[in-house]
């Protein structure tokens, strides 16, 4: 199966998801890793270039990042290919492809048959990157001519100085509750959020007390979020908070009260002093992210 992996870069370096896909792609057959020159994704110019380059491929793989999914869909439309987004696994079977992918906002795990040729986007982290994998050979291609009807104008950073993602789009969120005891203790929340690349949330108690700004509030009367990972620190789990985050895919809760309701919905619960746990957890996260 002739496979083309469209790699994505941030600040010059290949994204981890692209490395993951490249490492696995060879198992589908003859593989070429390509990347479009330039560091700002432009749907028209990039999709034209990729479609032209990969028009003979049986399988086009992209990372299921916002840009990757956007690109993959337009390339599939351009080439009239089958398309499956956000897959967590992929295998060749009986001349077609079989992919596993979440549906219904993650409430269903589906196995889908995708006729070849196809465009598939692969969720970051779906395929682990074996230790010591060499960086792939990347063919650089030029983007097609920019479409004169649409031009990039400027970048507007979010209030947090462009450092952090917003709650709405975050794939990971670290939320703090009353258990943090005061706004001065948010440093450990921020450090963990930085390690995870996460947005910062808060319980209503915390925003009401003025420890954190209102826009960080997660819950019934705040924001409803559905990240892949939700870390609840010192949050007891009143229904008003739960209503805003129970749809998160994986929930980690840290609370000193073993009867706290948050543990009833947590995938991983830690009963104990969060001031002890969180700094150690931050280090552990850095370690896992760094070595794998």
């Amino acid at each position: 199966m002739k496979t083309v992996v469209v790699a994505e870069r941030t600040r010059g370096a290949l994204r981890r998801v692209s490395l993951e896909i490249a490492a696995k792609a060879s198992s589908f057959g003859d593989t070429e890793v390509i990347a479009v020159k330039g560091d700002r994704y432009s749907p028209m110019a990039w999709s034209s270039a990729v479609a032209e380059k990969a028009k003979d491929a049986d399988l086009i793989l992209v990372g299921a990042t916002p840009s990757g999914r956007d690109l993959g869909a337009r390339v599939a439309a351009k080439l009239g290919r089958a398309y499956a987004a956000d897959c967590t696994d992929l295998a060749a079977k009986d001349g077609a492809l079989e992919a596993k992918r979440p549906m219904y906002a993650g409430k269903i795990r589906a196995t889908v048959k995708v006729p070849s040729p196809a465009v598939i986007s692969i969720r970051p982290g779906a395929w682990t990157l074996p230790a010591g994998t060499a960086a792939p050979q990347v063919t650089e291609i030029d983007p097609a001519a920019d479409d004169p009807r649409i031009t990039f104008d400027r970048f507007e950073a979010t209030a947090s100085g462009g450092k952090r993602v917003s709650l709405a789009e975050a794939r990971a969120i670290v939320s703090g509750g009353r258990g943090l005891k005061g706004p001065e203790n948010w440093k450990i929340v921020e450090e963990l959020a930085d390690a995870l690349g996460a947005a910062i949330g808060a319980s209503r108690a915390v925003t009401d007390a003025g420890w954190r700004p209102n826009e960080e509030q997660v819950g019934q009367t705040g924001k409803t979020v559905t990240p892949d990972l939700y870390v609840a620190l010192g949050i007891s789990g009143a229904i008003q908070h739960l209503a805003g985050m129970t749809s998160s895919k994986v929930i980690v809760a840290v609370n000193k009260d073993p009867d706290a309701d948050i543990f009833k919905i947590a995938d991983y619960g830690v009963v104990g002093d969060l001031f002890e746990f969180v700094p150690a957890f931050t280090e552990a996260v850095k370690k896992v992210k760094g070595t794998n």
Binding site: I150, F152, E156, T158
Partner: peptide
């Protein structure tokens, strides 16, 4: 980290 503003 923010928004890209495109003019179309």
């Amino acid at each position: 980290g923010g928004h890209e503003v495109w003019k179309a």
